[in-house]
């Protein structure tokens, strides 16, 4: 009799589509979040001297772990190559892929993933020598440009210069190292690649201080964390952790003042930090989930500044990644 009941329950569970334990249950049972990161990309995910993973992609996973476990260290980082990253997420080897991955339609739909947000608005930029006295990409008419062949950068370059009615000369190389070397030795005036990469490469040039990254971004490379289809609660959790980090910056909640802000008079802050409302329950966590994340990892601005911004060797300008209130694109959906 008991066996029949179990079988019946099993059939019911199957038909309701909840036969499998949810990702959140798996993560809690395991006691750690499995997070896919790069095998090393400056500012996004790289091991420091002690062997701890650091970077903006890494900190996002730490924020999720802090929201779930109240411990930002309960993350197991799986370094993945660009080829393996999607297989790893599909096979369930990782729970979330926070690996410098561009949000595109085909990945979001046919590959079976959901992008939770954009941690970093990247795009193609230009680097020139300071001595050329160029302040904008619009002044690059007639420049010789070092670029890696077979990349979208080469195509974007053509589009941009044609649209702006400028002439240019391409000097192309098959690997990024050759391209950098050519630029460093002065074979071309301009180096082009994704902006985050340009900043990382700039550090390795013979005289990093002699070069300047131009403000223009000429392509769209929105980079963000993603999860696989099939578990909407988990998708919500990842998505709202991201929004919580943005809202925290917008409302001035930082790693340092988070504990005091719980008693803030501002209803928005109260809802964010869980002293008002029951918003954590909607994603399967307790209501102070965002407080835990911000307290342990910091808000979006702190994460940015620490890993890629002015407090890091990279020194990347916020640019498109400023909050919408300051003219950027980062916009946290309201918690209410």
């Amino acid at each position: 009799m008991k066996r029949i009941l179990i079988a019946a329950a099993g059939v019911l569970a199957l038909s309701a589509g909840v036969a499998k334990a949810t990702t959140l249950d798996d993560v809690k049972a395991r006691g750690a979040l499995n997070c896919g990161v790069t095998q090393g990309l400056p500012g996004f995910s790289s091991p420091d001297d002690k062997g701890n993973w650091t970077g903006i992609d890494v900190d996002f996973c730490r924020a999720v772990a802090a929201a779930i476990f109240n411990d930002a260290n309960k993350v197991r980082f799986t370094p993945l190559s660009a080829k393996d990253r999607f297989t790893a997420l599909q096979s369930g080897a990782i729970d979330v892929l926070s690996r410098n991955t561009t949000w595109t339609m085909s990945r979001d739909t046919t590959l079976g993933f959901n992008f939770a947000g954009v941690m970093y608005y990247d795009g193609q930029g230009f680097m020139v020598r300071k001595s050329l006295n160029i302040k904008s990409a619009k002044e690059l008419n007639g420049a010789s440009i070092c670029v890696q062949t077979g990349t979208t950068h080469e195509l974007n370059l053509g589009d941009y210069f044609r649209a702006n009615n400028m002439k240019y000369e391409v000097i192309a190389f098959s690997t990024i190292d050759e391209t950098v070397k050519a630029y460093d030795s002065g074979r071309c005036d301009v180096f082009t690649s994704d902006q985050s990469q340009i900043y990382a490469i700039k550090l390795k040039l013979t005289n990093a201080g002699d070069h300047i990254v131009l403000p223009e971004v000429i392509s769209k490379e929105p980079l963000g964390p993603l999860v696989r289809h099939g578990d909407d609660q988990w998708f919500d959790l990842i998505k709202w952790t991201y929004y919580a980090l943005l809202n925290a910056e917008e409302l001035g909640v930082t790693q340092k003042n988070a504990d005091q802000e719980v008693n803030s008079a501002n209803p928005e802050v109260k809802r964010l930090l869980g002293s008002d409302g029951k918003f954590g329950e909607g994603i399967g966590l307790s209501n102070d989930w965002a407080l835990r994340a911000v307290k342990q990892v910091g808000n979006y601005g702190e994460i940015f500044d620490r890993n890629v911004g002015p407090n890091s060797p990279l020194g990347i300008q916020r640019g498109l990644n400023k909050l919408w209130t300051q003219g950027g694109l980062q916009y946290g959906m309201p918690i209410r």
Partner: peptide, 28 residues
């Protein structure tokens, strides 16, 4: 084995190259 995300000696070094705290022209 680096291609299957196992960090042997060379893999660890390659990851270390990406630490911005040590990015210099001669690190690699």
């Amino acid at each position: 084995v680096l291609i299957v995300s196992i960090f042997d000696l060379l893999g660890v070094l390659r990851a270390a190259f990406t630490d911005p705290a040590w990015a210099t022209p001669t690190t690699v």
